[in-house]
Design a protein around this nucleic acid. Structure first.
Lengths: 184, 184
DNA sequence: GAGCTAAGTCTATTTGACAGACTTAGATGA
DNA sequence: TCATCTAAGTCTGTCAAATAGACTTAGCTC
């Protein structure tokens, strides 16, 4: 996380959580594997068919996700066949759900064309569409980035003495940036 | 979106919104550019310094994001210098905010180590930490994937006659898959 | 041992990232 | 007019990863 990310904050945060997450999942094939895992697909061949990933890529991604703790292997054996492993989400893996939903919703809104969304996520108990919302710990609704203030957390690190020039203050035709100076 | 994604649903959804979103943003450098854009970073050199992206990669990503409508160019001119362009988020770009927050929160939880999160997103008006929640259109809280049912939406397409084998029903040591059969 | 099936692994080719160097496009001043 | 400057690219050769297609592996069954 850059200095500029925190505007005039006297801290530099380059150990960015976003970047850490991206180091694990920040590329297409991994997301598609996770998408399938959330859908209950567990076997290599099914993953391969569903994602279209080249075998070598899929093999590498699955191994990586197991290594990082997002998936785990579970042995299975079809009658008359050898023992094999399936891949299942761990709790850590399941906690990627908000990311997957957010990706889907953005695509629904901006990339589904005149057809509309192919899948609707509905509340199991009442059938109404599911939405994502921001709320603060005090219970207030938070509408979006403009109502959010990023502050240094416990993992923040001190900045170098020379702060970067602040080039975010030019309120142009669209007003100030989403945040009063930064990151999501 | 694969058949298996919808379990026993007689529909196949391969025009997946997630995949469409990933086609635009599904790789590390693009996410990092967006992270900076949300933080108010607008200029090439600042983006480059903040993300560490090789120039050629950055240039290509910026051009792509402008082309896709997530960023737009705004001319600026420092005194004594030539006219140049900055890059700013469009509304479409800003609507990626939930994805960025979700990426951050996952990283906060699972990848920030003993230091804890470097950045805390707080509610501007009261200072309490901001959280993401699921809620249905009827106003019910939805706790996570197990309370979500994916249904075909207007953009769903009919399946091929032969449904794929259902291999998600084996309730193993961790119970059924996150969804009763599917995608986020 | 032969045949089978699913999960990989291998190989040559193509594509994209990368580091470093170089170019471009206006503004300014002599 | 030309030299200088600055920021935003673009170029080039090298390395890494994706890709398509083929091949191998590991148990089970007969």
């Amino acid at each position: 996380m850059s200095e500029a990310t925190l505007g005039a904050m006297p801290f530099r945060v380059d150990n960015c959580s976003i970047e850490r997450t991206l180091a694990v999942v920040g590329e297409k094939w991994t997301f598609l594997v996770l998408r399938e895992a959330f859908g209950g697909v567990r076997r290599f061949a099914d993953m391969q068919a569903a994602t279209g990933a080249p075998r070598q890529v899929l093999s590498a991604r699955l191994a990586r996700l197991v290594d990082e703790g997002l998936l785990r292997k579970v042995p299975y054996r079809e009658p008359g066949q050898r023992r094999r492993d399936e891949y299942r989400l761990t709790e850590m893996g399941r906690d990627l759900y908000p990311i997957m939903v957010a990706l889907m919703h953005w695509g629904d809104r901006y990339r589904s064309g005149s057809d509309g969304p192919p899948v609707l996520l509905t509340h199991r108990d009442c059938g109404a569409p599911v939405e994502q919302h921001f709320r603060c710990a005090e219970g207030h609704e938070v509408a979006g980035p403009r109502e959010v203030t990023p502050l240094p957390g416990p993992g923040a690190r001190p900045a170098a003495p020379a702060a970067a020039p602040d080039r975010t203050t030019g309120a142009g035709p669209d007003g100030p940036p989403p945040h009063g100076g930064d990151t999501p």
